[in-house]
């Protein structure tokens, strides 16, 4: 589903060059639920941005859903983001002036779907996250957990092939975090590939694999579906004392 080979990303200013990713190579299979961990500044967000086609990269090769996306135009990247990718952000990133219905509608409008089709998808997605009764509510009228569920509905409404989640439980209390994680697991169980950046080892432990990024490189990406995190990846845990 997702394959990076030697991907590099350098941020340049007049005075400094920062190597955010140094020859990052990793692969995510279709249907996997993968955790991406690593300390602050390790390159997790850069990885997510590049994987989600939010940013370009400077070297290497990236294949998404069988298509080489290394050298696409901005318009082509937008199209792939819109059709194949779903995003869930730490701070939900709902549009504050739009109600729940219109927020879920945003990516569907950019896809140019007919209004009847959009309506069906929006209602189905909101039904799936248990917010079908809150269509007219503004984000400010919802709890954090509910807002994140709207964001999940927004990501699901487009039926993406892969979901990128950036610390989706980072701004939630433990009860709501669990609720959101259960929801993501359910979505993954239905076949959607999920790549989730997290600081939380508890959450990472619940996933199939943990890819640990350190200094811009993926230092470990083993199958963890049947083993606890501290036994399978001692090197990653030792390298990232700040995690969690």
């Amino acid at each position: 589903m997702l394959k990076m080979e030697g991907v590099q990303k350098i941020y340049r200013t007049d005075l400094v060059q920062t190597h955010a990713l140094r020859s990052l190579s990793l692969e995510v299979e279709e249907g996997e639920f993968v955790a991406v961990t690593g300390p602050s500044g390790s390159g997790k967000t850069t990885f997510l941005n590049i994987a989600g086609l939010l940013e370009t990269f400077d070297g290497g090769r990236y294949t998404l859903d069988g298509k080489d996306v290394s050298r696409l135009s901005d318009r082509e990247r937008s199209k792939i983001r819109n059709v194949k990718i779903g995003f869930i952000f730490q701070s939900f990133n709902l549009i504050p002036d739009l109600n729940v219905y219109d927020n879920v509608d945003v990516p569907l409008r950019y896809r140019g779907l007919a209004s009847g089709e959009r309506d069906r998808r929006i209602k189905e997605a909101l039904e799936r996250v248990g917010l079908a009764s809150r269509l007219k509510h503004l984000p400010s009228q919802l709890s954090g957990g509910q807002q994140q569920r709207v964001a999940i509905a927004r990501a699901l409404a487009g039926s993406p092939r892969i979901l990128f989640a950036d610390e989706p439980t980072g701004n939630l209390d433990s009860l709501m975090a669990r609720e959101v994680m259960n929801m993501l697991e359910e979505i993954n169980a239905q076949g959607t590939t999920i790549v989730m950046v997290t600081h939380d080892p508890e959450l990472a432990r619940r996933m199939h694999r943990n890819i640990h990024i350190m200094d811009g490189q993926a230092s470990d990406f083993e199958d963890r579906s049947d083993a606890p995190v501290d036994r399978i990846a001692p090197r990653a845990a030792a390298a990232a004392p700040a995690v969690g």
């Binding site: 937008s78 059709v83 945003v106």
Partner: peptide, 16 residues
């Protein structure tokens, strides 16, 4: 700015 970034992330082209 954030909202525009979010719209772009969700698939809006520059023309959109």
């Amino acid at each position: 700015r954030k909202q525009i970034g979010v719209r772009r992330a969700l698939g809006a082209t520059r023309a959109d």
